[in-house]
Design a protein around this nucleic acid. Structure first.
Length: 567
DNA sequence: ACACCTTTGAAGGGT
DNA sequence: ACCCTTCAAAGGTGT
């Protein structure tokens, strides 16, 4: 894994800033500072961008209102999972994941906003408070048990989670926008400012206060637009399209959240005290309490055959349900560390780049993943581990195998024999050749690290301090010859990544396990031009200032994209 | 409407 | 023990 910092291994969590994105080049080690700056920049950019978005969503409001009852719909489930994840993370946050200070923020962040409280990490009421907000069903006290007591200091809350937030280009964003609107984006780990976090702040005083779920409405109503951005505390119970959920009408929160009543039971689910026996497998993805679990996707529910809950759903023609599907609900696999990371960071990356294609975004995310410090990754591993645990508790008999066959077979599978390039469109080489060489199959290094527990990760002998160079090369484990190693990486010009990276050595397709039969391809040209624009054309003077501040950053960061024409 | 693409990680079957 | 395959998320793109 990428633990880059070459030398700095010692400073763990405290300095995320040091973590460099290896993407661009080895030199980073030397210029870790610049890197950090970059990161900041990234954060800043994303925040700027994201903040602007907002308005968008409220399309669901009506639906939400109409659907007072918790629906087991896909979105709900996912949301649920998301929140759950976030909740878990928050619990751990205190622990080893310290959020970066984001020095860069000051440039962009309005001083006013600067919540002292954030910067000094004093938010602690926080975790709990926030947890409650986002995950009201959790019995916070109870969940505390899960909490890692490792960290006495809560630090900033890491509000992660990016729900899918519609990303809007920041072009016209007002610098102050951030003050007003909150997008879930802010909740990404990368986004620091706690002041932007959903933590409830007294509108007047700006002082964080501990809200009761019932108090939420006052908070959200800040601005209609903003409301949409705030994840519903019961997100997974309330159908939301991945968007803003608070379609609250003028009246404010009308929603009594019937589910709230289940708080106790929910807490039992979450709490470590939870006993597997208690939770039988529910046919429709409902927990015994009746609460759908995010991981469960019941075709039946999804389709809402009865139409009782959602008229809209009726229009849909149900997917041909197989017997199996009918019989059992689809229980999704628990998300792994990378997936969790992706969920959180995707919006951010999207904001930074104009790229919208997930494939491209994912490549970037993959590189970033590798560039994360071990501590950071450990956090995700831990989170993933907990999620798996919970999942296993909820669905004791579930096997990943159960989901096999649900998707159609991938083309890729079939074409294993066919030449890689055969069916693909012209490939673009993402990584420079040299890098290819360097970065061997490091991609799975993180896997190695994948610790059973975070602590293990940190201390894991298996995962020696990152050494550096090729960040990606974590452990040398990949002894296997990468058969795909030579694949001509596609050619992508430079950059695929916005921030950096395209050239990252780290994410080579090399899979140690040979999973990927083809090299990373970028079939379609990325909108680099636009990317470039977004990166270098500060939307506002405000941005510009920030950019200048980070000027060094640019120097160090070869954003290849800049030069590249996406053609 | 749906598969593909892309990423990493986990899981499970096969050898 | 290792290899291989599938799925998890996501959303633009292609068919």
């Amino acid at each position: 894994m990428p633990q880059l910092n070459g030398g700095g291994g010692d400073e763990l969590g405290a300095n995320d800033e040091l973590i460099s994105f290896k993407d661009e080049g080895e030199q980073e080690e030397k210029i870790s500072e610049n890197v950090s700056a970059e990161r900041d920049l990234d954060d800043v950019k994303s925040s700027l961008v994201n903040e602007s978005e907002n308005n968008s969503s409220s399309s669901d409001s009506e639906q939400t209102e109409r659907r007072p009852q918790p629906r087991a719909d896909l979105e709900s489930y996912e949301k649920a999972r998301e929140y759950f994840t976030e909740a878990l993370r928050r619990q751990q946050d205190g622990g080893f994941f310290k959020s970066p200070h984001y020095p860069g923020y000051p440039f962009l962040m309005i001083p006013d906003l600067g919540n002292p409280y954030l910067s000094n990490g004093a938010l602690s009421p926080s975790a709990r408070t926030y947890l409650q907000m986002k995950w009201p069903l959790l019995d916070v006290p109870g969940t505390a048990a899960l909490k890692d007591s490792r960290s006495p200091t809560p630090g900033h809350l890491w509000t992660g989670t990016s729900n899918k937030v519609p990303v809007v280009q920041h072009a016209h964003m007002h610098p102050l926008t951030p003050l007003i609107t909150y997008s879930s984006e802010h909740f990404s780990p990368g986004t620091p400012p706690a002041h932007l976090s959903p933590e409830i702040l007294d509108p007047k005083t700006g002082i964080p206060r501990t809200p009761h779920p019932s108090e939420l409405s006052p908070y959200y109503p800040l601005s209609p637009g903003a409301m949409g951005q705030i994840p519903h505390p019961l997100g997974w119970l309330v159908p939301q399209q991945g968007q803003p959920m608070y379609p609250i009408t003028a009246g404010g929160f009308r929603h009594p959240y019937p589910a709230l009543a289940m708080n106790a039971s929910m807490s039992s689910l979450v709490s470590s005290r939870f006993s597997p026996h208690i939770v039988p497998h529910h046919p429709h993805g409902l927990h015994q309490t009746g609460i759908p679990h995010p991981a469960i996707v019941s075709p039946a529910i999804k389709q809402e055959p009865n139409g009782e809950l959602s008229p809209a759903a009726n229009t849909k023609s149900p997917v041909p349900t197989k017997k199996e599907e009918d019989k059992k609900p689809h229980i999704k696999k628990p998300l792994n560390a990378f997936m969790l990371y992706m969920k959180e960071m995707r919006a951010k990356v999207v904001a930074e780049c104009t790229l919208k294609e997930s494939a491209a975004i994912n490549q970037i995310l993959g590189r970033r993943w590798h560039s994360l410090s071990r501590e950071e990754q450990a956090k995700y591993y831990e989170l993933a581990r907990k999620e798996r645990q919970l999942h296993s508790q909820l669905y004791p008999g579930w096997s990943a195998r159960d989901n096999y066959g649900r998707r159609k077979k991938r083309k890729r599978d079939n074409k294993t024999d066919s030449t890689p390039e055969g069916n693909k469109k012209p490939c673009v080489q993402y990584l420079p050749q040299e890098k290819m060489i360097d970065s061997p199959a490091s991609s799975h290094g993180s896997m190695l690290d994948s610790p059973a527990t975070p602590s293990a990760a940190l201390a894991s002998p298996a995962a020696p301090a990152p050494t550096h160079s090729e960040q990606a090369q974590p452990l040398s484990l990949t002894t296997k010859p990468d058969r795909h190693h030579h694949f001509p990486l596609l050619s992508k010009p430079s950059s695929s990544s916005c921030t950096s990276s395209s050239s990252s050595s780290s994410s080579q397709p090399t899979s140690s396990s040979g999973r990927q039969s083809t090299p990373p391809l970028l079939s379609r040209p990325l909108p680099l031009a636009s990317l470039h624009a977004s990166l270098f054309s500060p939307p506002s003077p405000f941005h510009q200032a920030a950019f200048h501040s980070h000027h060094a950053l640019f120097q160090s960061q070869p954003l290849s994209l800049v030069t590249k024409s996406a053609d």
